[in-house]
Design a protein around this nucleic acid. Structure first.
Length: 129
RNA sequence: GGAGUUGGACGGGCUGUCGCCGCGGACGUACGUCCGGGGAGGAAAGUCCGGGCUUCGCAGGGCAGGAUGCUGGCUAACGGCCAGAGCGGGUGACCGCUGGAAAGCGCAACAGAAAGCAGACCGCCGCUCUUCGGAGCGGUAAGGGUGAAACGGUGAGGUAAGAGCUCACCGGCUGGCGUGGCGACACGUCAGGCCAGGCAAGCCCCAUCCGAAGCAAAACCAAAUAGGGAAACCGGCCGGCCCGGCCCAUGGUUUCCGGGUAGGUUGCUUGAAGGCGCGGGUAACCGCGUCUCUAGAGGAAUGACAGCCGCCGCUUUCGGGCGGUACAAAACCCGGCUUAUAGUCCGACUCCCUUU
RNA sequence: CGGGAUGUAGCGCAGUCUGGGAGCGCACUUGAAUGGGGUUCAAGGGGUCGCUAGUUCAAAUCUAGUCAUCCCGA
């Protein structure tokens, strides 16, 4: 199975971000807030990262984004077909952050989202049929 | 050996797996696949200056406003750099500062008699009066005390007491001349007058410079919706009809046009570029020759995870073990400045101690 | 990219323009008043004036640099 993650699987418009913030589900863990919304495109989900200045300087913010992107790339087969926006909380320390920490934090949440997402997809497809 | 001053270079390396963003080539109808090659810094940072570039404005000049400020040079330009001058600090290597206060206005708390065209509290001296304690008038500015700062210093003459009042020397100032230097200035000499305080990072004066905005600049392509302009046809009114005119809730349909939003493309990296060599210059820098191409995104790539090796601490049973490995990431591009930075290496110089 | 504001006692602010004593309110401590508490009255303590340099006799105030926070415009 391929583990690529091209640009088409990212959220690149401000309107799409605000749609996730306003019309999506909101879950939170110890270090992250996750907004998830049903994708307009069929099939694949997309990822958006919003790392604010409160998380540190540019080097720290870049590291957080890269680790999160790597996490979603390696676990993309567990990802539901939704638009997901991840925002770290401000007490996340970039120098202590790693892939294993991201897995501990986000894997249960991903499973939870995919359960509810699959259910809603089957509901909507049933209505269409 | 110790302490220090100053200039420069670097700021992790290798391998594997899985990835990301541009570029070139091949296959290929589009989509896509494969191959090759590239992909953060000395400060990319702060955004404090200067320039290029783009659009707008502009006959020329002035005012206002802002910036800079010893001299000479470098530069596209600069508030930058280099070389020098004066002053200050340091034993020294070396470091720091810089227009004008005899154009004018203004300011100086408290203390002190007095804080700025000088003046006189205690003193000192003379005269007059006296109740013998002193008081009044006048002279004086050497001495005292205050303050951050009190209108030259020392000595002699002089005097009632004194005083640049006079003289000598010293210090400082102004002007002239000579020598050296492109110049800031230095040195020498003559004359004057004995004195002219501080603050311009208070207002100000003088000299020089400055049009404004910024790549979200700007150019091009250009939906949907609303509105604008033009033409044709239809409709209504004036009218018997045509021509013509009007439709003031400026009626409806079609076509065309221009502006322009979302969006897209360009701007976008070959440049006051870098390396090496030679030459000129004390240097900053400049000239010539030759070689190289070195990120170009657009919610924003340059990574994640392993392993080995460096480097630095702590520890050790000398096999090793544990921990750490800075600051900080391009966003139109350059030249500087400022600030942050674990450590490593190299050059030059100064002072002290020891040995020969 | 461009522009602006703020930083002073535990908290909220004045003082900065025009340089000389660091202040106001709440809070805190002590005392009075009450049987006790609150209210009230009186007295008191507490400040590297964000930081670092410079100008000045003297800096919260002036100048330069720097740090942090906040707010605008495109």
């Amino acid at each position: 199975m391929s583990l690529t993650w091209p640009r088409e699987r990212r959220i690149t418009r401000r309107a799409e971000y605000t749609a996730c913030y306003n019309g999506g589900e909101r879950r939170s863990t110890k270090y992250f807030i996750v907004f998830a919304r049903h994708s307009d495109l069929s099939g694949t989900g997309r990822l958006g990262l919003a790392v604010t200045k409160k998380c540190g300087n540019a080097v720290a913010r870049n590291r957080i984004k890269r680790v999160l992107r790597s996490f979603f790339r390696l676990h993309q087969h567990k990802m539901p077909p939704m638009d997901i926006v991840v925002t770290p909380k401000k007490h996340l320390r970039a120098d202590k952050f790693s892939l294993s920490l991201a897995e501990d934090e986000l894997l249960p949440l991903l499973a939870e989202l995919s359960a509810s997402g699959v259910q809603s997809v089957s509901d909507s497809s049933g209505d269409a049929a």
